[in-house]
Amino acid sequence: MKTHWAEMKSAATSIWDLHCHLSGVPGDTPEGRLGHLIAYADRMGVERLCVFMGMEWHYDPTPEAFRLENDDVLRALRHFPDRALGFVYLNPKFPQQCLDELNRCVRDGPMVGVKLWVAEHCDAASLDPLVDRARELRVPVFQHTWLKITGNLPGESTPQELAALAARHPQTTFICSHSGGDWEVGLCAIRPHRNVFADLGGGDPVAGMTEMAVRELGADRVLYGSDIGGRSFASQLAKVYGAKISEPSKRMILGGNLRRILEPVLRAKGVRF
């Protein structure tokens, strides 16, 4: 009998999860929640978690609110520095405060990426200063995107808008969160831009998604992420384990690509990986 479980375990040697949250998780403190996530990560063979946004989320946060959310993540990271990495959450409507927070959390702190959610459409000119600064700090910009037939939130970005931003900043690394949600459209939108990676996380485990991402972008531009705690490790890891792609491609998606993206900033910070 063919044992796919053994296959899963062999591929699970160094899984890095790109997309984790502290919301939707039991616990009264950030470190309590992250500890909870890590307990499940251990069961699923996930080695590192990239965490962003705080215990309480805001669609359109004030600078004070996004600083507090980042404080939650910084506090959690202090308890699990060898298991978790942080991305700084920003609102591009406040350019100077974004730069200040980038400096606080990335230049002077442990964070290794930028997270943008639904406060502002990502093709807006207000993003340019923070994107430039992210490039200087050699960290990726993780942009939420979703194409909803039911209607997007007022500031919610589409993958097409991310493609426009990426075209303006060809030297910056972007990650297209959820692969655009409607991934058959989203993957095509980002396909021309080699500086844009696809995040598999957060949608239903619809079969064929990962195969299309590898076919259209190449396995070196595809990243595993779960979007826990709203989602499960199970449904999102299945997108890789269940995909009809090569084993080397699976290893790249499960962690190799993310390590490659983060290598400059991790080395600069002296993080062992």
Binding site: H4, M8, Y40, R43, M44, D204, P205, V206, A207, S232, F233, A234, S235, L237, A238, K239, Y241, G242, A243
Partner: peptide
């Protein structure tokens, strides 16, 4: 086959 089969299977593990 609309969902990856492994999704349900891995829930038994998680």
């Amino acid at each position: 086959p609309l969902f990856y089969f492994e999704s349900a299977l891995l829930k038994l593990q998680e």
